[in-house]
Amino acid sequence: MEQFFLLGGTAFLITFLIFPVFIKVFKKRNFLDSPGGRKIHTVQTPSMGGLPIFIGFSIALLIWMPFEQLREVKYVISALTIMFIIGFRDDLINLRAYQKLLGQIAAMLIIVAVCDIRLMSLYGLFGVYEIPVVISYMLSGFTIIVITNAYNLIDGVDGLAASVGIISSLFFGIWFYLVEANAYAFLSFAVLGGLLAFLQFNWAPSKVFMGDTGSLLIGFFLSIVAIKFIEGNYNLPSSHPYRFDTFIGPAIAVLIVPLYDTLRVFIKRMLRGKSPMHPDRTHLHHILLRLGCNHAQAAGILVTVNVIFVLLVLVLKGFSDLVVLPALIITAVTLGTITEFIFKSMIDKRKEELRERNRTYRKEAKVISIKKSVG
């Protein structure tokens, strides 16, 4: 375990030390994210925070990762590099949506077709185990694209995306270490160290944003380790002490914030007759900000919810997905409904106050008008 801590510590130290330099360079080169539109920050802030994270991640792996294990994940690192370049290119000069999607598909195909990291079963969900190879490739590709972009969508408030990434990479890293999947444990701890360093500069008030350079990279990485976890856990002997009897549940619990928020937003948009890709300000972090939370409070609430779901799935470790998945869904919907109810009540109260104020103004104006006519 010492080697993993050294790797994570190296990634943290390198990333932490080079961040101030990159922030100055970003400001000098005017690589800044300007406020306005749907953006909720109020000052120009350097973006492309994923660049120092990627550098720290890469150097730490080269220093500490044994060559044999580096060879094992060389194509995974290649796919991560492609996703990093896509995000970096988009932050420099905006890519069209279809161009970003094509790049994501290219990186995804390396993972699914070359690395053979894919969902090879439904793991007993709905009573289904074996699935055709074509379905396996399609389902795996869809899962990777969904998780990547869901993570990208929660990068809207200081500290949130980094915190979710820290929780996820820590969970997967520890599990991979415990089951001796060391190559993926190295990757997870390298990402963990980079994100911990980034959070020092991204917690409100943020000095730098992750940008697509970071969010696409980290989201893509989390999609890979989530699938690797599901398949690896399923193939463990039933007597293994670190085997979950729920196969899909833990991955969903760890990524519950981006997955639930994206699904909820997409459904609400379609119910309003809009495209699910139509941008708006209805994400959970937007709602919490409108309820009066600042960036730190909004991120803290959602991170706490994330931790609760991880603890819940650990408690339900011995139950199947038929028990765990409904428990996760019911809990998520209940918390979401409560938040929506509080938000709606607050909005209704403000509307009523505004109507009452308008009625008062009209009455006062009428009285003044009468007095003038009498006078």
Rank of each mutant, 00 (worst) to 15 (best):
residue 6 L to V: 02
residue 14 I to D: 01
residue 18 I to S: 02
residue 23 I to G: 02
residue 25 V to W: 11
residue 26 F to K: 02
residue 30 N to P: 00
residue 34 S to R: 07
residue 35 P to K: 00
residue 46 P to A: 00
residue 61 L to Q: 05
residue 63 I to H: 10
residue 67 F to M: 12
residue 70 L to F: 14
residue 70 L to R: 07
residue 72 E to K: 09
residue 78 S to V: 13
residue 80 L to N: 01
residue 100 K to Y: 01
residue 106 A to F: 14
residue 108 M to R: 06
residue 119 L to Y: 05
residue 121 S to H: 11
residue 122 L to C: 07
residue 123 Y to Q: 03
residue 128 V to M: 09
residue 133 V to Q: 12
residue 135 I to Y: 08
residue 141 G to V: 05
residue 142 F to T: 12
residue 145 I to L: 15
residue 150 A to M: 03
residue 150 A to P: 04
residue 153 L to P: 03
residue 161 A to E: 02
residue 162 A to T: 03
residue 164 V to P: 04
residue 169 S to L: 08
residue 170 L to I: 01
residue 170 L to G: 08
residue 173 G to V: 01
residue 173 G to S: 03
residue 175 W to D: 04
residue 176 F to V: 10
residue 178 L to M: 11
residue 181 A to Q: 13
residue 181 A to I: 13
residue 181 A to Y: 14
residue 184 Y to D: 05
residue 185 A to P: 02
residue 187 L to G: 00
residue 188 S to D: 09
residue 189 F to C: 06
residue 190 A to R: 01
residue 202 N to A: 06
residue 206 S to G: 10
residue 207 K to P: 02
residue 207 K to R: 13
residue 209 F to K: 02
residue 214 G to F: 04
residue 217 L to V: 03
residue 219 G to Y: 00
residue 226 A to F: 07
residue 226 A to P: 02
residue 226 A to D: 05
residue 229 F to D: 05
residue 231 E to I: 12
residue 232 G to K: 10
residue 238 S to C: 00
residue 240 H to M: 04
residue 240 H to Q: 06
residue 241 P to W: 07
residue 257 V to Y: 04
residue 264 R to D: 07
residue 268 K to I: 12
residue 280 D to V: 08
residue 283 H to N: 03
residue 286 H to C: 13
residue 287 I to R: 14
residue 293 C to F: 15
residue 299 A to D: 04
residue 301 I to K: 13
residue 302 L to A: 10
residue 306 N to A: 12
residue 308 I to L: 14
residue 315 V to A: 15
residue 321 D to L: 11
residue 325 L to S: 11
residue 327 A to I: 08
residue 338 I to V: 15
residue 338 I to Y: 13
residue 340 E to N: 14
residue 340 E to R: 04
residue 342 I to C: 08
residue 345 S to A: 10
residue 347 I to S: 09
residue 354 L to H: 09
residue 356 E to N: 15
residue 357 R to N: 13
residue 359 R to C: 03
residue 364 E to W: 12
